[in-house]
Nucleic acid binder design. Structure first.
Lengths: 140, 140
DNA sequence: GCTTGACTTAGAGTGCGCTCTAACTTCGAC
DNA sequence: GTCGAAGTTAGAGCGCACTCTAAGTCAAGC
């Protein structure tokens, strides 16, 4: 049992700001966090684990509304496990589509970079018979 | 030479809305498009190619400000090729980092899904000596 | 007891990337 | 020439995900 963390410590552990932690609590992304005597928040290990999962969902661009729904299901107990699994499966499919779109786009970037490198090489190379650049790109 | 396209046709080809096409032009993401007699926009093949490249940049989440900078460099001619290449290389590195973060997160999703499937299987299986679930997840 | 700094709240503000509106013009079919 | 659809503009509005502010409370060291 590690001691619970203050909001600022929790912020550092999760990579979120204290503002954002309060915001997430306000909108119901995380359940009410335990409080110290004076009303200050104290984050337990379970809170941090949930926040870590939320940040992973965020990495995959899950919209906050969906995360809220997921959090709500989670809070209502094990009966919602199938629904939660379904949500994650649907989301995972979207994420995989997203990843492959990004990979394709990354390939296009690489192609463009290679094209630019070719242009640069041609521009700096000494002019050469039948290799003289007539006209450089005006569409790349 | 294909005939130039109206804004609505260009929208369909690019997957952007006509509103967005006008917006992109307003903010300088695309240069002023040719106009028909009455002032209506006519998109040429080169415009569509540039728009296709922009949508690829968008897929990789390049912010519009950076796209604008890129567009500006492009419009000033071949002297900016090295700068453009540098921009794309920097961006590509970010994109690759992004992709791998998403892949890691996708793996975490898969793990969670598998965990849920195990829970579901345990819940539906007939109780079994020494396999009886004592308590189900309250942190997953 | 005083000070300093971290904490609390409700609510306002921000930046991004569109998205829509209002008022008006133009095009193409009839 | 009339009509309806599609185009034009400048500018307002929106949804998202924070991010910050103001005014006040609390905790810990001196």
């Amino acid at each position: 049992m590690e001691p619970p963390l203050s909001i600022e410590e929790a912020a550092q552990r999760t990579g979120l700001s204290a503002h954002t932690l309060r915001y997430y609590e306000r909108i119901g992304l995380i359940a009410a966090v335990a409080r110290a005597a004076g009303g200050q928040r104290r984050y337990a290990a379970a809170d941090l684990a949930w926040l870590a999962f939320l940040t992973r969902l965020r990495t995959t661009r899950m919209p906050i509304q969906k995360m809220r729904l997921f959090a709500q299901l989670r809070s209502t107990g094990d009966a919602t496990v199938p629904a939660r699994r379904a949500m994650l499966q649907t989301h995972l499919a979207e994420v995989q589509a997203d990843i492959s779109a990004m990979q394709q786009a990354a390939q296009a970037l690489q192609d463009k970079i290679a094209h630019y490198q070719a242009l640069e090489a041609a521009a700096s190379a000494p002019p050469h018979k039948n290799t003289t650049p007539k006209k450089e790109s005006n569409h790349g």
